[in-house]
Simulated scan of single mutants.
Amino acid sequence: MQREHLASALTPPKQACHVPVWRVCADGWQRSTVDVLVEETPVALVYNGISHAVMLATPTELDDLALGFSLSEGILDDLSQLYGLDIEHSADGISIMMEIASRQFHSLKNRRRALAGRTGCGLCGVDSLDGVARCQTPVSRGAALSASRIFAAVKALERHQPLRQTTGAAHAAAWVDADGVIHQVREDVGRHNALDKLIGARARLGADNREGFALVSSRASYEMVQKTALAGMGALVALSAPTALAVRLAESSGLTLVGFARQHSLVVYAGASHVLADMPLAREGDSADTLR
C-alpha cells in the first residue's frame, strides 16, 4: 500500500532535466552553470497483464512508442488489434498497459521472448537465429525519390529537433513526403525508439507509407531497416552509415536504403534505380520546412 501511494504521488517525468555543472576551457575554470540533459526512463511494455519488454526511452509520445514497437516487432498486424492502452507511472519507471487481441497475445506467448531494450544496438533479445529475419513480404515502393528533395529534408531536419537542440543527446525519426516536406518527427534518446514512435504515429493516422521516406538521424542498422520494412515504408534515409547486413536486408525486401545523407550529397546502398540524381533546389523557400 505504501508503494502504491508513492507511485500515485509522483509527477510524470519530463523529456529533459536541468543539472548543475562546471565548464572548463583552455584558460581555466568557468563559473558554475546549468546544463540540460535528456531523460531516459525505464519503460515496460505490458500486454494483457504480462510484461514483455523493458527499455530505456525518453518519456514522451509513449502511446506512439508502444504502438510502433508492437507493429515493428510483429506483435500486432494493425491498429485494430490494439483494444486499449493505459500509461501508469511508478517509483521504478513507466508501464504501458496494452490490451490486445487474444490471438495476437497467444502468438506472443508462444514466441517465448525475453526483451531488454537499450540505447545501443541489438536484436531485442530474440531467442533463436530463426527469429532474426522477419521481413517476408517485399515492401511496395511509390514514385522514385528526388535527391534534391532528400537534400532539402536533411537541411530542414535540425529545425524540427527541439530535444536535440536543447540536450545534444537525442535521435530523431521523421516522415518526409515525396516533395521533401517533413510531416512528423519523433525524438528519443534511442534511435530504435524514435523510429518506433514515428511508426506508431503514422499508424494512428492510417497513413500510406509508400510515397515518401523515413529519415533518421542515426546509422541504419539491420533492425532499423527491418522496422522500416515491416511498417510498409518503401525507403529509409540515414544521416550515418548502414551495416552490411542492413544493406542485404534492404535489397532482399525491396527497400531503398540511403546513407551518409547530407545537404548536398548522399550514398545509395540499395534501390539505386529508385533515386533520381537531379539538381539541388535553387530556392531557399523550397526547403522542407513544414511540420504537420
Rank of each mutant, 00 (worst) to 15 (best):
E40P: 00
D92L: 12
A114M: 04
D177N: 15
Q104P: 01
S265D: 15
G254M: 04
S146V: 11
S273W: 05
R262S: 15
V38C: 13
V34G: 05
C135D: 13
I75N: 02
A231K: 03
G117H: 04
L198N: 03
A172T: 11
L79E: 08
P59S: 11
D196G: 01
R31W: 10
D196T: 04
E187W: 00
D92T: 11
V132P: 09
P59A: 12
S90T: 15
L215R: 03
V21C: 13
A288I: 01
L249M: 10
R111V: 05
R164W: 00
R219A: 14
V132R: 12
L195Y: 02
G285C: 06
G232R: 05
T290A: 14
L115R: 12
P138F: 03
P13S: 10
A101G: 05
E40G: 02
P12N: 07
S8E: 14
R3E: 14
G259R: 06
S265P: 01
T228W: 09
A53L: 11
S8T: 10
V46D: 03
N193I: 09
P42S: 08
L45V: 03
Q104D: 13
T243L: 12
V267K: 14
S70Q: 08
A207M: 09
L195A: 06
I199M: 07
A114Q: 09
R111M: 11
D127A: 14
I100G: 02
A201N: 03
E211N: 13
L236Q: 05
L239A: 13
R111A: 13
S8D: 08
V247D: 03
H264C: 10
L115V: 14
V126C: 08
D127N: 15
S72M: 11
V21H: 11
R159V: 13
A143I: 00
G212W: 12
K197H: 05
A44T: 14
V21K: 07
S240Y: 00
L266C: 11
A116S: 09
V268R: 06
A114C: 03
L56C: 02
K14N: 07
R112F: 09
G190H: 02
V46M: 08
S287A: 12
E223G: 04
Q184P: 00
D78K: 06
V216M: 07
S252T: 09
L163G: 06
S148M: 10
G232P: 09
A250Q: 01
T290C: 12
M224K: 06
P20H: 14
E158D: 15
V24T: 13
I50R: 15
R202C: 11
R23C: 07
A53Q: 04
V268T: 14
C135T: 15
A133L: 11
C121F: 00
T243G: 15
